[in-house]
Design a protein around this nucleic acid. Sequence first.
RNA 1: GAGGGUGUAGCUCAGGUGGUAGAGCAUCGGCCUUUUAAGCCGGGUGCCGAAGGUUCGAAUCCUUCCACCCUCACCA
Length: 490
Amino acid sequence: MERNEQSEIRLEKLQKLREKGIDPFPARPPKVKKVEYQTGSLVQNFERLSVSEQKVTTAGRIIAIRKHGKSAFLHIVDSTGKLQVYLRQDQVGEEDYELLEYMDIGDFIALEGIMFRTRTGEITMDVKAFDFLAKALHPLPEKWHGLKDIELRIRKRYLDLIVNPEVKKIFEIRTNLIGYLRGFLNDRGFQEVDTPILQPLYGGAFATPFTTHHQAMDMELYLRIADELYLKRLIIGGLDRVYEIGKNFRNEGIDRFHNPEFTLVELYQAYADYNDMAELAEELLIHLGTRLFGSQEIEYEGEVIRFSKPFQRFTLHQAIQQYTRLDIRNTKIEGLKEYCINNEIILPEVESYWKIVEKIFDEKVQPYLIQPTFIWDYPLEISPLAKKKEGEDDLVERFELFIAGMEVANAFSELNDPLDQKSRFEKQLRLREMGDADTHQMDHDFILAMEHGMPPTGGMGLGLDRLVMLFANAPSIREVILFPLTRLKE
RNA sequence: GAGGGUGUAGCUCAGGUGGUAGAGCAUCGGCCUUUUAAGCCGGGUGCCGAAGGUUCGAAUCCUUCCACCCUCACCA
């Protein structure tokens, strides 16, 4: 155990309680017997309970103690809120009142008493009996500055949650958002499914995977980087509308928009295309805003963001033209490179035409897309799973949705031609041979599935953590993930 | 991976140009039966992130390392 002066003192108190025959960690409260109320319902039912002067019981963690000699006020908290309790020597008896000496901030106690209001009007329990439920051996962080150190907040999230109320709020929003998302999709006939996280081949995105090994089967496995290929197999299997809310893992850098494990919502709808996906995205965001806050407007990082149909739309080349005055349709690769050099954009490792376009977009356009904006019609080269756009050889039916400069959704009319899919994968293999590290793997099993017939399908992936960031007004992905990855510390 | 920054008591933070460590809360002792940042009186806090070095003397200067933060790079 980690020890210091304060924990030593608490250990001594614990020892003294044991010497007095009091169990500091009883399975159930010996005097109070049964915990009947959460603090929230004591407050809610206060009028009734105080008028009848009936004895009620509750329990919680001590977060404040104010001693006044032969009486003391404590505040306890549970998941429903905070309650003040008033402990008096003449109510609990001299012997029990002395036990206050062994009570610390952080301890859990059970209480029995009568509800009343203090002189200042605060709802309070006049305690008749109490029990220790669990002794805390370390103090809580300081009461009004709380826990600020970001590293400590993440490593000791339990303290962060106790001490910083806005943190709890963020995770409530996260929970509610997921609930409303499920409701929205279920109402539209989508079936929620689970597909494998451990995969013998990875795919559905460009990213470096985590690798692992199964002992009994002596098999190399990857942690999935996307759910896509399995969900499409389900579409082929006749589950016309499916979705998954799942953890994905990408072995890449960490910053305020990226955590190595993150949550992705992927949904697929047969007999739909990317236009339908865009409409679904619009409706979903409006639905979430309305259910969470009763509003189609949210504030993120000081910007008011409005969700109202239709969201603005640009094709990729329109967007680039608008923000850079560069007409990519009439610019050769040399022209793009020249633009990058003149505008201090570092060229990508693989200097292909569309990779450079993507880079220019990331630098010069994306950060300025504050209001919800669809960017339409992406290059074929970086979209091996999307259907070609009619009449455009190098474009596919794909869009991404940007809000507050963040990519929050990515959707396409799914490629369902197995011959085309096979040649796309082959193209990816050639790119890999040419030195592109993140290319799509060849997946014969997936192609075989598609060869049995796949309906035209619209598919969309939504970054759930980023949605939560938006709706919770959180500046970093670490604020919306309970336990972001950190290094192990001695 | 590169550059910048941070690391001092359980928590939040001070500690110009090197002289051996401070505040508030918490904690400990005392007084106090309606307080709520309770109050009043008194006390102890510490491997100054780690290891080396310079120096009579290092929290402070130098080197290396560790962790974290920010920017960039990487990255559907």
